[in-house]
């Protein structure tokens, strides 16, 4: 158990340094956007937090499948950690998006495909946490949790497609044929965005590792308590 914290502390320190660097890049390196002005700077961390949200969402789905195949509680801890982190980061992404949307679109919220899908992802995760809360047996909790993350993993893309069919006004970053409101970014902007995404990926890894470790410790406490009762 003590072998890990060394590389973990390294990752922690690295993500802190990267975070400061990314913040500096966002504030000083990236040029001010001509049309939207300073508020556009929120965009870099918005993309990065949304990316972490997606990452955690996928990680939870994959860990769910892994749990069903192996019945190893390690995967359940990973799944729970990923969900909790994703929940927070997706929420942060939504809030930052609102801050940006208010001056740009003139409203805090629209029922656009990405916004709505992000909101529904949050609901799926909250439901996941409520489901876990209602089950005492750790093994069953893990099984049901895995099934639910798997179902969410499949349904959320379908949700996205279905709302996309309705119509969208969210700026499309990775240009596809139909992209209308695409952004023109200078190379400094692209660098800042990519750097932010990498930074937040490191933050994600370090948070994940910490949360999984915490889950393992909680399990040990639980076992120790059971032994003490006996």
């Amino acid at each position: 158990m003590n072998a890990k914290p060394r590389w973990l502390m390294f990752v922690d320190a690295l993500s802190l340094i990267l975070f400061l660097a990314a913040a500096a890049m966002v504030l000083f390196y990236a040029p001010t956007e001509r049309m939207m002005g300073e508020v556009q700077r929120v965009f870099y961390f918005h993309v990065a937090t949304a990316w972490v949200g997606m990452l955690g969402f996928c990680a939870a789905g994959v860990a769910g499948i892994a749990y069903l195949r192996t019945a190893d509680l390690k995967w359940d801890r990973i799944s729970l950690a990923a969900v909790e982190i994703s929940l927070v980061f997706f929420f942060a992404a939504i809030v930052q998006g609102s801050v940006w949307a208010r001056p740009s679109w003139g409203t805090w919220w629209t029922w656009d495909s990405r916004l709505t899908t992000a909101a529904i992802v949050e609901m799926v995760y909250l439901a996941y946490l409520l489901l876990r809360q209602g089950i005492d047996d750790p093994e069953r909790r893990a099984r049901f949790g895995a099934i639910y993350t798997l179902a969410g993993f499949v349904s959320v893309p379908l949700t996205f497609i279905s709302i996309r069919l309705l119509r969208t006004i969210h700026p499309v970053l990775i240009a596809s044929g139909e992209s209308t409101g695409g952004m023109n970014m200078t190379s400094e902007m692209v660098q800042t965005m990519v750097f932010s995404v990498i930074t937040f990926s490191f933050i994600f890894v370090s948070l994940m590792a910490r949360r999984v470790q915490l889950g393992r410790l909680a399990e040990q406490v639980e076992q120790a308590r059971l032994q003490a009762v006996e």
Binding site: I120, L130, G134, I135, I147, Y148, A151, G152, S155, L166
Partner: peptide, 30 residues
């Protein structure tokens, strides 16, 4: 599928709509 999970939890019938609705969005929209 979800109802057979929900009945095995402590919160049971309260839980089903919470589990079900977010996953049903594509069906509802379509």
């Amino acid at each position: 599928l979800l109802a057979s999970m929900a009945v095995q939890t402590r919160t049971r019938d309260v839980l089903l709509p919470i589990l079900l609705f977010p996953l049903l969005i594509p069906v509802l929209i379509a």
